[in-house]
Simulated scan of single mutants.
Amino acid sequence: MQPLRGIFFKLIAVMCFITMTSLIKAVSGEVPPGEAVFFRSFCALPIILAWLAVRGDLRTGLRVENPMDHVWRGFIGTMAMGSMFAGLAFLPLPEVTALGYAMPLLVVVFAAMFLNERVGVFRIGAVALGLIGVLIVLAPRVTSLGGDTVRTMEAVGALIVILGAVCGALAQIFIRKMVQTEQVSAIVFWFSCTSTGMALLTLPFGWVLPTPAQAAMLVCAGLIGGVGQIFLTSSYRFADASLVAPFDYASMLFAILIGYFIFEEVPTLQMLLGATLIVFAGLIIILRERQLGIQRDKARQAKLPHG
């Protein structure tokens, strides 16, 4: 294990993903989300293939045991990505980022529902705290439903982002089951393939011919997203997941800076308060997962024969 290297790679991945999201936001007013998903997924494929070739995993890394698992994971994951991209057209970047943090909270709930994982009072309390934060962020948007057109679209955008968080959490549940039989490299590669194909299904619903500048941003978003995926996966090779997971929340700092200097978006105090509660709840869950992991390791070691 090389924890500092793992943290460094995770921060690079976070920067890549927030840069990718910013590029998508820059074109979101003109380019429909389905088309953005296509560019994000298709342009990442060469990067992922090159990475597999360098690692020597090109043959084994593309092998699948349960093809339909990849199809369903691709469908749910594409819904999550498309919803997040759609929300970028209506909401400030920091707000979309904050609402996206609901995903790990929902993973805890769905893991109890679908994977029969035991969830104690401690984590239930953390999830409740985080969901209060989500409601604080959502409140100004939901209360504006039925107002003028702009405010109504912002409210719809917020609800779409929450839908994306729900789908993203379900996708994580699929991945938790898939890693028992599938290689991580195969999950990454075939998700890009399936999301590319599913994004193409939205072609009849209003794709546009992007300008050269828009096309460049879309292609860069896909390439940067592919690089981010590689660094994300690599970070878990050098450090425990519980160590690098908290650095996901560095994306809020990057989102605030990019939103302010690039998109002239000033976060409200209410949004910052809600985001703080969500981040705090997420950190509590991560620390609890780490503690439970240590306890499970000790229990396994205690059962091993000695002497």
Rank of each mutant, 00 (worst) to 15 (best):
V179N: 15
G6L: 07
I187Q: 03
T78S: 08
M68K: 08
L138N: 03
F8C: 10
V161M: 00
M15S: 10
K298S: 11
Y101K: 02
T194N: 14
A112L: 01
L257Y: 00
G274Q: 05
T196I: 06
I230K: 14
M79T: 09
F191V: 14
C220H: 01
L163E: 00
H70Q: 05
F17M: 05
L170F: 07
G29E: 13
T181Y: 04
F280D: 05
I18Y: 09
E35H: 08
D57H: 10
S242L: 00
R176E: 09
S192P: 00
R296G: 05
A98L: 04
P246H: 03
C193H: 00
V227N: 05
G225S: 07
G222L: 05
L129M: 09
A126P: 05
S83H: 07
S242E: 12
R288L: 13
F174N: 11
H70D: 14
L62T: 12
T194E: 04
G147L: 11
V108W: 05
P67Q: 02
A239D: 10
L304W: 01
R63Y: 02
G282N: 12
A111R: 06
V179T: 07
A199V: 03
R73G: 13
M103Q: 04
L269N: 15
P305V: 00
F8Y: 13
L4C: 07
C43N: 03
C220P: 01
A50S: 06
A158F: 12
S41H: 02
P305Q: 04
G133Q: 09
E65Q: 15
G133H: 11
G274N: 10
F254Y: 13
F247L: 09
W72I: 15
E30R: 10
P210Y: 08
A111G: 02
T19Y: 05
N66Q: 10
M103E: 12
P204I: 12
G29H: 15
A155C: 08
V219Y: 00
T78H: 05
L163H: 04
I294R: 12
P140V: 12
A281F: 06
L201G: 15
I124S: 07
C16E: 02
R123Y: 04
V108G: 10
F191E: 06
Q214L: 11
Q295S: 07
A215Q: 14
L304D: 03
S251K: 03
Y101L: 12
I132H: 03
P32R: 13
G120P: 02
M20Q: 03
V266R: 09
R123D: 06
V150M: 07
T97K: 02
L159D: 03
F9V: 02
I173F: 12
P94T: 01
I162D: 01
L105C: 04
G125W: 13
F261T: 13
L145M: 10
V54W: 04
D148A: 14
G82V: 11
E264Y: 07
D248Y: 09
Q301C: 07
T276Y: 01
L292N: 11
Y249N: 06
L105E: 05
V227K: 04
A241S: 10
V266D: 06
I224P: 02
G293Y: 08
I162W: 00
R73K: 15
G293K: 04
A215Y: 06
L4R: 10
I48Q: 13
D240T: 14
